[in-house]
Design a protein around this nucleic acid. Sequence first.
RNA 1: GUGGGAGUAGCUCAGCUGGUAGAGCGUCGGUCUGUGGCACCGAAUGUCGCGGGUUCGAUCCCCGUCUCCCACCCCA
Length: 464
Amino acid sequence: MSEGAAKKEEKPRKFQAIRGTRDLLPPETALWNRVEDTARSVFSTFGFGEIRVPILEDLELFARSIGLDTDIVNKEMFTVTDDDAMDLAIKAIPPDKWMTAQGDIRLVEEIAYNILKAGEMGLRPEATASVCRAYIEHGMQSLPAPVKLYYMGPMFRRERPQKGRYRQFYQIGAEVLGGSDAPAIDAEAIEMVMTFFDRLELQGVQLDINSIGCRECRPKYVELLRAELLKVKDRLGPDSQRRIETNPLRVLDSKLESEQGIIATLPRIADHLCEACATHYAAVKHQLEMRGIFFRENWRLVRGLDYYMRTTFEITAQGLGSQNAVCGGGRYDGLVELLGGPPTKGIGFAIGEDRLILSLQESGKAPALQGRDVYIAWMGERAHATAIRAAKDLRKAGFRVELPPVEQKFGKALGQADKLGAKYALILGDNEVSEGLWTLKTLADGSQAKYTEPDLLEHLKKQL
RNA sequence: GUGGGAGUAGCUCAGCUGGUAGAGCGUCGGUCUGUGGCACCGAAUGUCGCGGGUUCGAUCCCCGUCUCCCACCCCA
């Protein structure tokens, strides 16, 4: 008896993309490519070069830069443990420790845990930390300052999926590192994103800016704000009450209708910036005006990541539901130093590519089918050989060519050509092959003409 | 993580108060072995999201679970 006989035929399990991840398919990917090509083109005109950093980084890198208390690090990170780390953890424990009769298990466990932790990696939730790490690792401070870099790629955050929010999502971002903290740098970074959005004809673009001060003035303001919030604590909702302790700034952008009146009376950071920050903020605004960039000062705009200081900004667009920010950014002087590098000025932004695409789709027309330039309708073995040669030559000239793998009646072939959105059908049958004259049909109006092989290529080059 | 809504063919959906499924579109074939879009005819495809329960019997009722959508939260 074979053991297989007893087994029931099991249908293979159906797989699906895991929660919060998705496939991007052809007509839509054309739009993604257009967006990415435009980014590369615009950013390079501003002197930015592309950097590609790993998707996996030491967990500690994100914890330090983004902040241990932020939701992103605290509960939204996907972590990965290297198997080798486990081996290392075990090997690093001296044999006598293992053998100790009293068995100081706690010590053994602690050593193992620490080494294991050193081997812990995280899927990047954003890329600024990685770019800073790379800046330090490759000694980019010795490059002509400032160093201007951009990147694009997938990021990961374990959040509950929603419109415009995915667990694997895509960001296009840029960072300016080193050199000065001149307000013109802030303004130029913003100008670059706005130029990019402009080029894409993104609709309903709204730029909000604010300054959230520095290590000197912000803590003082936060304390003042906290004190004021405590006075009105009982009139706030549970979320805001919690935030009084965890992050008072966040109360400012509460969406609760009932809290709006109270928030309007709260002290504003613009009135509490130190001399240097106030001057910087004023200059950034001036620089934006000089560049003809419209902005809205938003004193309630705060950023969630620990490393931001002074200039912060956010850009929203239409058609996005409640996750309507397509770009967020700000200045982060001191981050590089925090990660073990030299004191370095820095500013950057990140664009949510998924949201950008969503907005483009909502306001614009859906991308058309890919289409073909030439559909080759052939019949007969001799024609097949000719068709293969024709396809090769046309493709070499850059045309998008569809060459059917099996013989089709001309009626069916033309039908296929039509469905694929082809512009021309090249008809190759016995007549064409023996005459040496190929028939080219224009699908749009049904007209057709005969050409010799070289003439046809020339004709098409002129047309397309 | 919290609250609400939804999962039936590739897509959009129908399915009366329980009797194991249909339409339109699309796909493929035919009418049509030298000419497409139209029309007509025909065909294929469903573990009715998954698991369990109630029942003689469940797409329908109950419980659980997964996924998506909307909002909160958070952020791009």
